[in-house]
C-alpha cells in the first residue's frame, strides 16, 4: 500500500520572495489530491517541494517538514537524490530525452540504479509502458526516438519513465496543459487507474479536471493554503468565500 504525505509548516522562497507560507496538509495514500489556484499562487512550487525539486533552482529554498511514511524528506541526513527516487514527477510539457529511444527513456531511471540485466529491464519497461497505457501504441517502435511520438504519447512516455523506478508518490505538474482534449482524456483515465498503486498529487488549472479525477482538493491563493477538503465538498459547498469566488469563476 502506498504511503501518505504529511506536510507541516512548509515555507518556500525564491531569493527574498516568500512564495509559500506555513502550509499544513495531509495527502491521503492511494488517492488523487488536486492542487488548484490562480497562476502564481504557489501550487507548482508546492509540489516541487514534495520531491525537493524546488531547491534545484538557483536561490530557491524551502523550510519545514514533509513526512513520507513518517520520514521527514527535509531531515538533516536525507539525500535529495534518494527522495526523488521515491517521489516521481511529471512536468507541464512532455520532456522525453530526445537522444534516447522509447525503450531507453523508460529504462533510464533503472539504469542509473545499475540495473544491467536485459531480461529485467525488458520486463520493467514493458510493465511501466503498460501502466502508462502506452504499450499497445509503442511496442513496435521501442527503438525509435522518444521525440518522434505525438505530444500525448510523449507525456505518457514521461509517466512511464517516472513509473519505471516504482515510486511511492507521483507528482504531476499540470500534465495536460500542453495537450489536446483527446490526449487529456487518456491521461485522466490513466490517473484514475494509477491511484490504485500510488499516491498522486496533481496540479491543475482546469477545475473540471480536478473535479473529475481527484478525491481531495486544495485551493491555494497567494502562497497560502486557503481550503483543503474532499473534492465534492470544495466544488459544491466550499467553506471559504475566496474558494467559492475562484471556482465560480469570479477571478483567476
Amino acid at each position: 500500500m502506498a504511503d501518505g504525505i504529511l506536510v507541516k509548516q512548509l515555507n518556500a522562497w525564491f531569493g527574498a520572495l516568500h512564495v509559500l507560507r506555513d502550509i499544513d496538509l495531509t495527502i491521503a495514500p492511494g488517492a488523487v489530491t488536486a492542487i488548484i489556484g490562480p497562476s502564481g499562487c504557489g501550487k507548482s512550487t508546492f509540489i516541487r517541494c514534495l520531491n525537493r525539486m524546488h531547491e534545484v533552482v538557483p536561490e530557491a529554498r524551502a523550510q519545514g517538514q514533509v513526512l513520507l511514511n513518517g520520514e521527514d524528506l527535509y531531515g538533516p541526513r536525507v539525500d535529495p537524490v534518494q527522495v526523488r527516487r521515491r517521489v516521481g514527477m511529471v512536468f507541464q510539457k512532455p520532456n522525453p530525452f530526445p537522444t534516447m529511444s522509447v525503450f531507453d527513456n523508460v529504462a533510464a531511471g533503472l539504469r542509473l540504479d545499475g540495473v544491467r540485466n536485459h531480461a529485467l529491464l525488458d520486463e520493467a519497461v514493458e510493465h511501466a509502458l503498460h501502466q502508462a497505457a502506452l504499450w499497445g501504441e509503442v511496442k513496435d517502435v521501442l527503438g525509435k526516438s522518444g521525440a518522434s511520438l505525438s505530444g500525448g504519447q510523449q507525456q505518457r512516455l514521461c509517466i512511464a519513465r517516472a513509473l519505471a523506478v516504482r515510486p511511492e508518490v507521483l507528482l504531476m505538474d499540470e500534465p495536460c496543459s500542453a495537450l489536446d482534449p483527446i490526449a487529456t482524456a487518456k491521461i485522466e483515465e490513466l490517473i484514475v487507474q494509477l491511484k490504485k498503486a500510488l499516491t498522486i498529487v496533481i496540479v491543475t488549472h482546469n477545475m473540471q479536471q480536478a473535479a473529475r479525477v481527484s478525491e481531495a482538493t486544495a485551493f491555494f491563493l497567494l502562497g497560502e493554503l486557503v481550503e483543503f477538503d474532499k473534492t465534492t465538498r470544495i466544488f459544491t459547498n466550499p467553506s471559504d468565500r475566496r474558494t467559492e469566488d475562484y471556482i465560480t469563476g469570479r477571478f483567476g
Partner: peptide, 28 residues
Amino acid sequence: PNAQREAALALGATRWETTRLAVLRYAR
C-alpha cells in the same frame, strides 16, 4: 532546455548523472 535537466533530476539522478544523461547527450 532546463526541462531536460529537470527530467533527469526528477528520476533521481545525481548532478553528474543529469549532466551525462540529459545535458551532454542533448548537446553532443
